[in-house]
Design a protein around this nucleic acid. Structure first.
Lengths: 349, 349
DNA sequence: TTGTATGCGTTATCAT
DNA sequence: ATGATAACGCATACAA
């Protein structure tokens, strides 16, 4: 019993059928788990499949089923290429992105659904993308959008493709989305700072044209108001590390006796903390700092950052589940789920 | 001249042919850029394509050409899921990963090649992966391996699939790879520290079972030796932030009067610097620190990290080019390219 | 230069 | 329960 050399050509359904002594159709039934197959034959077919190392040809299957067994993870962002930094995909280097991928794969992998990574960063690429998606090359779309006024969610709607958005879209759409309760998260930060007895409080907000930016600021303001007459000065940041540093400088200018600050993203905090240190402020003694996200950036801060945790991986996993469900039940209405953030207390506040 | 409503079914070659008044074959020729088409007919076909919003069906095309127009980016790493951190893909949150994706897409996107993101983190997933790849669902593979003794490169060889590795593989294979000259990079760091007049020098190395770990240490040692009788103590790290912190503690124990240190990755430096600060050492006055990578972590350090730059995006772009070439010229022998690192001087040394 | 005809590997319909 | 057979949309060898 010697193992024969592998065939140069992958085994087909036909080959398996020949070996098993049945028809193509029966082999196909076994592979697709049809219940109407004689147990004896089923075993024979399974043996033949193993012996021939058969694996279905996805292209052929996809041609007839009009399903691909794959979804697209599309990252949408404004083009910001410069001569100094000619490479694309600012989002790809954001810790957030890795957590999303991780959570997505966690549910996609067990069911054998592949993930295409696609980027849309200008009008041309957006148009191409939509046309590509429209032709059914993927069964569904997960969209991570890094900027407001992104036309992509709306464009996606016309596609009739199952889709799930990361974060509440700026304009309401019929597309499902997954988000954390941003306002509740900001309230956690406010309560913590107030509980610490801080009175001169500032905040570095996110971009005011993004829902996450708006909601975190609104939630923080409302909670602070509920705690009484704290003065709250806010300065707008852009969710980047450099932007965080710049915003903190401005904030210190406007509120020199600052003793507590809420920074609406850990990445911005990573940029802001050195500014505080540069002014000789000790953390948390002189100023207590609370971030948002609980990304790896929070641990990169010194001291380690107290922050509002978004369960990004769990959220991404839920996005994948929603998408799979939408794909398998075409009639299903859009459905969104909101996660509750938690406060992770470390040493900065 | 009113635009008619889009058909519920995507246009096929047949539809376009009908509109243009030619045969399927001619439309196919136009789409595939054949030179043997009458200019007038070509224009007619192009108009018809635009009017019908035709886009080729990839599954059908792939079925006959046996090409998919997509490649796989496979991330190979040891499984390290814990209860506390149940999610997969440590690599995905490494800044390195985002830079690779960015560089890859830079060359893949213009030629319309899609990228599948795949993960291999245990024996089962590796076997499944190879069997998947073997069936020609992708035209080629880019492999990023995060650990030594990875059986995947060898497994890939048997696949006969075009493949390109990121970094020199532990065991020599016939597969192309792209790498930076690690030893030369480490020499840059050594020369800089020596030039600064530092004499009590330590280094936090990478894992000694990874080529990058070995080469950086060897290169650093050799260059230091060339500079005379500096004592060089080395401590092994694991290329993670936490590992960098732990290693730095050990290093300080072994070499309390340390005044210069080479940390073999920026991420480790990000963990190590707070340890130094915690001991009251000023950077760069008391101790000069040089990192490796020039990743975003280098800028997250305070002070900003002087580091050896690997042009990761350019390297990834080159990987994509090599892979595309291997796909289009089947006979082509494996080819590797080595990039030269440069020193980026900031404030830590 | 253009059209006709065939086959790629699978699922689905329809007999049996 | 099983087996023929017809699509699925495309590229291509061959004929014209």
């Amino acid at each position: 019993m010697s193992s024969d050399p592998p065939p140069p050509r992958p085994a087909t359904l036909e080959d398996v059928a020949l070996v098993a002594g049945v028809s193509r159709a029966t082999v196909s039934r076994v592979i697709n788990g049809a219940q109407t197959v004689d147990p004896a034959l089923r075993r024979a077919v399974e043996r033949a499949i193993a012996n021939t190392r058969y694996v279905p040809n996805r292209a052929a299957r996809s041609l007839v089923t009009r399903r691909t067994g794959s979804i697209a993870l599309v990252v949408s962002e404004e083009e910001r290429r410069t001569v100094a930094d000619p490479f694309i995909g600012r989002m790809f280097t954001d810790p957030y992105f890795g957590r999303v991928v991780s959570g997505l794969l966690e549910v996609l992998r067990p069911v054998g659904v592949q993930m295409l990574l696609m980027l849309a960063d200008d009008d041309v690429s957006r148009t191409q993308l939509v046309s590509y998606l429209q032709q059914g090359h993927v069964d569904g779309v997960i969209l991570i959008s890094s900027h407001a006024a992104d036309p992509l969610p709306a464009m996606l709607t016309s596609t009739r493709l199952p889709a799930v958005l990361s974060g509440r879209p700026p304009q309401p759409t019929r597309i499902s989305y997954v988000d954390a309760d941003q306002q509740a998260g900001a309230r956690l930060a406010a309560d913590h700072l107030a509980g610490l007895g801080r009175r001169h409080i500032g905040t570095v907000s996110g971009p005011m044209d993004m829902p996450a930016g708006q909601d975190r600021l609104a939630g923080f303001r409302a909670a602070m108001a509920a705690h009484g007459d704290h003065e709250v000065i806010s300065v707008e940041g852009d969710f980047t590390q450099a932007g965080g540093a710049a915003a903190m400088k401005r904030l210190l200018g406007e509120l020199p006796d600052l003793d507590g600050v809420f920074i609406a993203s850990d990445l911005m905090a990573l940029g802001a903390l050195p500014v505080l240190h540069g002014q000789g402020r000790r953390l948390p003694e002189d100023v207590a700092v609370v971030g948002f996200d609980d990304s790896s950036a929070a641990l990169a801060c010194s001291p380690p950052l107290t922050t509002v945790r978004q369960p990004v991986e769990e959220m991404a996993a839920e996005m994948a589940r929603l998408l799979l469900r939408a794909i398998n039940e075409p009639g299903r209405p859009a459905q969104s789920v909101i996660f509750q953030p938690t406060l992770v207390v470390r040493q900065s506040a």
